[in-house]
Amino acid sequence: MRVVAWTRALLIQSAEQGLAEGTLQIGEAVRRLGVDATGVHQSQCARMCKISLRTLVHIEHGEGNQTLKSLNAVFRPFGLQMGVVKVRRSLN
C-alpha cells in the first residue's frame, strides 16, 4: 500500500502531538507510524529503522527496557527523536 506524502505528514504530526501531550503511548505511536505512515510490514519497518524485528515488536507492545538508541532508531525515519517535554500540572 502506497501512502500519499501529505497523509504521511499528517500521521507523523498526529503521532508527534499525541506523544507530546501524553495521549499516545510510544508503542502505539510506533505501530501507527510503521503501518499507517509507511504501509509496510513489521519486518520491512524493522529493516528501515535498522533494528531487529524482535526489538520493534517489544517497542510496539511496551515490553522490555528499551534503550534511547533503539527508540531513536524507530523514530528517525519519520524525522522524530525522543526528548524531554514539560509536564503540565493541573491546578487543584
Rank of each mutant, 00 (worst) to 15 (best):
M48S: 06
H61W: 08
I26H: 00
M82A: 15
V35W: 12
G64L: 11
Q13N: 12
K86S: 09
I26T: 07
V84W: 15
T67W: 02
R89K: 15
S70K: 01
L91G: 05
R47W: 00
Q44R: 13
R76H: 14
G79R: 14
C49E: 05
A73H: 01
R47S: 12
R88P: 09
L80A: 02
G64V: 11
A9K: 13
S52P: 03
K86A: 14
V40R: 15
D36C: 06
N65V: 05
T38Q: 14
L71I: 10
I12Q: 00
G27W: 15
T23H: 10
M48I: 04
R2C: 02
R8C: 01
A73N: 07
R31M: 08
S70Q: 08
N65G: 10
L68N: 07
R88L: 08
C45W: 05
T38H: 14
R76A: 15
Q13E: 15
Q13I: 02
T67E: 02
T38M: 13
V40E: 14
S70C: 14
N92G: 14
G34D: 08
R54S: 11
S70P: 03
M48W: 13
T55D: 13
W6A: 04
E63M: 14
T7N: 04
T23E: 11
G27M: 04
Q13H: 12
G27T: 08
A20H: 12
K86W: 07
V4P: 06
S43D: 11
R32L: 15
C45Y: 13
A46T: 01
R8Y: 02
G62N: 14
C45E: 00
M82S: 08
L24V: 02
G18C: 07
Q66M: 10
E28H: 10
G18H: 13
W6M: 05
I12V: 15
S90N: 13
A5Y: 06
V87C: 03
A73L: 09
R8D: 03
Q42A: 07
L33A: 00
A46G: 05
R8Q: 11
A29S: 08
F78N: 07
V4Q: 09
R76Y: 07
V35I: 15
G39C: 00
R54E: 07
K69C: 04
L33N: 04
G62Y: 05
E16W: 05
E28V: 03
R32Q: 15
N92H: 09
R47E: 15
C49Q: 12
M48P: 03
N92F: 11
K50L: 04
L71F: 03
R2D: 08
A46M: 06
V3T: 06
G34M: 05
E60M: 10
G79K: 13
K69E: 14
L10V: 01
A29R: 04
H41K: 12
H61Q: 13
M82C: 10
R89C: 00
W6L: 08
V40C: 04
H58S: 14
Q25N: 11
T23D: 09
R54V: 07
S90R: 15
T38K: 09
G34I: 12
L68W: 10
V74H: 00
G27Y: 13
L11Y: 11
